[in-house]
Design a protein around this nucleic acid. Structure first.
Lengths: 162, 162
DNA sequence: CGTTCCTGTTTCGTAAACGGAACGATCGGG
DNA sequence: CCCGATCGTTCCGTTTACGAAACAGGAACG
């Protein structure tokens, strides 16, 4: 974790960033849905751009303790599109349904471990380690972990220039 | 505004993004401090990267109705640093004190209109239209609008590679 | 062993972000 | 003209993110 790599304690960061220790603790364990204000207070104190710590598709509890989380690793822009690269983590048994997004956005998923079923809600596909899935996100789509192993994957979102 | 340029109504966007109209209305008028979850729901529906709509240093009411707001225009990375460019708006009489950030972060402010007093809390400098201010943000620093005119400025944050 | 200081988690009351519904304003069509 | 549809804002009860403080677990020291 970023804070630990900096060698700063939770208590210290909470104090210098001006947020409660309860807040910081809860955020690090993914059991809260932070406000932009607290997020900025923390990133500013760490000397890191806001985008560096954004968790993407909000952690959505579906079944008891079964969640899907996405963490933004990097975002960049080239001449005709911008991209966001997430690390995806799907707990065993977890299943998440995302509503349709604006047309033109493409999702690319590469599975590192576990078995992932994902894609358009009416025609999801399955991939295991090394596999790749791609779809356009203008229809509702799902993510689900098959089997009892946690799924690790990368998720690349491509937003065309407009 | 982005939503209007798309020609989509508040009511429609609220429905398709799955958030309340009250929420969307309040956000557009800057009177709420959104949750990451709602922010993602909206940007995803608009087909836009999260970073594209981030408001930066949270709108901080100091005196009655006197606020400082910053809106992220663009963020990018080169070989040895990443940058975030904000549009800064300081209402007449507003004054904001920001705590010290991590060492290495530099703030550049260019004033377009009005008179801005900003910089390290113990030695702020003053700039009018066309003026430029620069300081390192590892000490507490202030922003204040002098005179009775609203200050418009750009704020460039430079985060060195680590 | 106690004592002290630190870690990170948990409890709890308060403040505020949330969605649903009610509202007045504006626009077209018959 | 009035009526229906849709716009964005406001009101309100519920949910939840927030900070202060209490808490349990380790490590260092006497």
């Amino acid at each position: 974790m970023l804070r630990e790599k900096r060698g700063v304690s939770l208590s210290t960061l909470a104090r210098t960033a001006g947020v409660g220790k309860a807040t910081l603790s809860a955020l690090e364990n993914g059991l809260r849905n932070p406000t932009l204000e607290t997020l900025y207070a923390i990133t500013a104190q760490l000397g890191v751009p806001l985008a560096a710590v954004l968790s993407g598709p909000a952690t959505t509890p579906t079944v008891q303790g079964a969640t899907v989380t996405a963490t933004l690793l990097e975002s960049f822009t080239d001449t005709d599109a911008s991209y966001e690269l997430y690390r995806l983590r799907v707990r065993p048994g977890a299943e998440q349904l995302s509503p349709a997004h604006q047309a033109g956005v493409t999702e690319h998923v590469t599975v590192f471990s576990g078995m992932l079923r994902a894609g358009p809600a009416d025609a999801p596909a399955t991939a295991t380690a090394g596999g790749h899935l791609r779809w356009t996100s203008d229809v509702p789509h799902v993510y689900a972990a098959l089997g009892d192993e946690e799924v690790a994957a990368s998720l690349l979102l491509r937003y065309p220039r407009r």
